[in-house]
Amino acid sequence: MKIKNLIYILLACYLATFLRLIINNNFIISLFGSFLVGFFINQRLSYSIEKILLSGFFSCFTSFSGFIYFLYEILNKGDWLKFIIFFNLIIIVNLFAMYFGFYISRKIT
């Protein structure tokens, strides 16, 4: 990987990290991230732009550890039913957000 590209990826990561900390809502962040990833994967992007957006920005913007911590908090209360409903719901909603982004991107191009 070229140094110039790595610097751009790092800058995208910093922006994404601070945006995530400002928004401070994992569900909204993951929905927004999934929608935009779905939108951009259908676009014809150069390799470096794809790396900056997907590996730099969106990977740092969305957080799997935030998702696990959210589920842990539910599990810690002993609410198994809520845990099962939430983890399925979050994944299904995000999957459809990504599909929606992909669909809109396909309609535009």
Binding site: C13, A16, T17, R20, L21, S30, G33, S34, V37, G38, I41, L54, F58, S59, C60, F61, T62, S63, F64, S65, G66, F67, I91, N94, L95, M98, Y99, F102
Partner: peptide, 15 residues
């Protein structure tokens, strides 16, 4: 942890 882990890539695998 926020930058290391990635939820969007996990959803992309599923997608």
């Amino acid at each position: 942890l926020g930058s290391f882990s990635t939820f969007s890539s996990f959803i992309y695998q599923l997608f």
